[in-house]
C-alpha cells in the first residue's frame, strides 16, 4: 500500500483549526510565520483570535502567557529554532514558572528541514524543553498524530511543547488510533529488544523491527510521543521483558529522548541502551533523505544498534 506522505506541521495546523471551531477560548499567535506554521487558515477564519506578533519571539511568548493567564488557550507557533531559543527565558519564567496554559507549536524541528541548513535545523529542542518544570513535551510521529497531539494539548492543564517538522513524512498511525498524553503506544511486539522512538524515527523503528524479525530477532517498538511526562510504566514493562533498549530520535544524542529513557532505566532497571541521534554536531544544507542518511538516522542504523544492545546483555 502506498503510504500517504504528509508533514507533521500540516497535521498540527489541522488540529488548531479544529480546536478554533470548537473552543472559542483557543487563540493563536505567530511571529511572521503564518504560512510556515500552517496557521494561515486559522487567521483567515478567526482573524480576531489570531495575533501575528511580527519577528519578535520574546514578546510573542510573553503575550501568549498573558492571554493564558486571562483564561485563553493560546497556541504560540513558530520555527522551533527561533521560538524556543530566542524566548527560552520567557518560556522558563513567564510560562513555566507561572504555569501559564500556553501551547507552543515548534515547526521545522529536526535535521529534515533540509536545505535551509544548520540555523533552522533545531536539534536541541527536546532537551531544552524537557528540563523545564511544568512543561509537557510531545513529539508526534506523523501528521495524524500531530493533529491529535495539538487537540489533546488543549485539555492538558499547563504548558505544552509540540514538536513538528517541515517536510512530508510517511504515515505511522491511523485515525482510529488512540492518543493520550503521557501514554506511550506499543506498535510492535518482540522479546529480544525494546526500540523506543519518537517523531519521524518511529517509522524507521518499525521498519527496523520488520527487518530484525526476518533475522529471527523480536523487537518491541514503543512510540514515545510524550517525552515529558515520560511513560515509565510502558517503558519498564517492555525492558523488563527484553533486557535491552535502543532509542531513536531526530535530535542530539544528549538530553533528548535517549537521555530521558536512560535516566529512567538507570534509576529503575539498568539494561544496555544504544542511542540513535545526532552526535553533537550542527547539521548542514541538503535534502531530507540525504541528511537522514549522512547523519545515521536510518532503519539500518537502528538494526545495528539493536544487535549491539542485545550483544551487551548481561555486561551492561
Amino acid at each position: 500500500m502506498a503510504e500517504k506522505m504528509r508533514a507533521t506541521r500540516d497535521g498540527a495546523g489541522d488540529g488548531m483549526l479544529e480546536l478554533a471551531k470548537a473552543m472559542p477560548e483557543v487563540v493563536a499567535l505567530t511571529g511572521d510565520m503564518a504560512g510556515s506554521t500552517r496557521t494561515d487558515k486559522f487567521e483567515k477564519l478567526f482573524p480576531d483570535r489570531f495575533f501575528n506578533m511580527g519577528i519578535a519571539e520574546q514578546d510573542l511568548i510573553g503575550t501568549a502567557a498573558g492571554l493564558a493567564l486571562a483564561g485563553k488557550v493560546p497556541y504560540a507557533c513558530s520555527f522551533s529554532s527561533f521560538i524556543l531559543c530566542r524566548a527560552l527565558d520567557q518560556i522558563r519564567v513567564s510560562v513555566c514558572y507561572n504555569n501559564a496554559n500556553v501551547k507552543i507549536v515548534g515547526t521545522h524541528s529536526g535535521i529534515t528541514v533540509g536545505p535551509d541548513g544548520a540555523t533552522a535545523q533545531m536539534l536541541e529542542d527536546i532537551a531544552l524543553m524537557r528540563v523545564l518544570p511544568n512543561m509537557c513535551v510531545l513529539v508526534p510521529s506523523d501528521a495524524e498524530e500531530a493533529r491529535k497531539a495539538v487537540v489533546a494539548a488543549a485539555s492538558w492543564k499547563g504548558p505544552v511543547f509540540i514538536r513538528v517538522g517541515r517536510n512530508p513524512a510517511p504515515a505511522v498511525t491511523a485515525v482510529p488510533d488512540t492518543f493520550g498524553i503521557g501514554k506511550a503506544n506499543l506498535l510492535a511486539r518482540g522479546n529480544d529488544v525494546t526500540i523506543v522512538a519518537c517523531g519521524i524515527m518511529v517509522r524507521d523503528a518499525l521498519d527496523a523491527a520488520a527487518e530484525l524479525a526476518q533475522k529471527g530477532v523480536g523487537a518491541d517498538v514503543i512510540n514515545m510521543h510524550t517525552i515529558a511526562p515520560l511513560d515509565a510504566a510502558t517503558l519498564l514493562a517492555s525492558v523488563e521483558k527484553t533486557g535491552a533498549a535502543v532509542t531513536a530520535e531526530e535530535h542530539q544524542l544528549a538530553g533528548g529522548l535517549g537521555g530521558a529513557v536512560a535516566e529512567c532505566l538507570a534509576a529503575n532497571f539498568p539494561v544496555p541502551v544504544e542511542m540513535i541521534g545526532i552526535a553533537g554536531v550542527f547539521g548542514e544544507s541538503g535534502e531530507s533523505d540525504e541528511l537522514k542518511l549522512k547523519y545515521g538516522l536510518t532503519k539500518e542504523k537502528i538494526v545495528e544498534a539493536c544487535l549491539r544492545s542485545i550483544g551487551r546483555k548481561g555486561r551492561a
Binding site: 503575550t63 493567564l69 527565558d89
Partner: peptide, 14 residues
Amino acid sequence: GQGLSVANGWALAS
C-alpha cells in the same frame, strides 16, 4: 523585561 508583554496579552484577552 517580561511584564509588559504579559500585560499586553491580558489586555488582548480583555
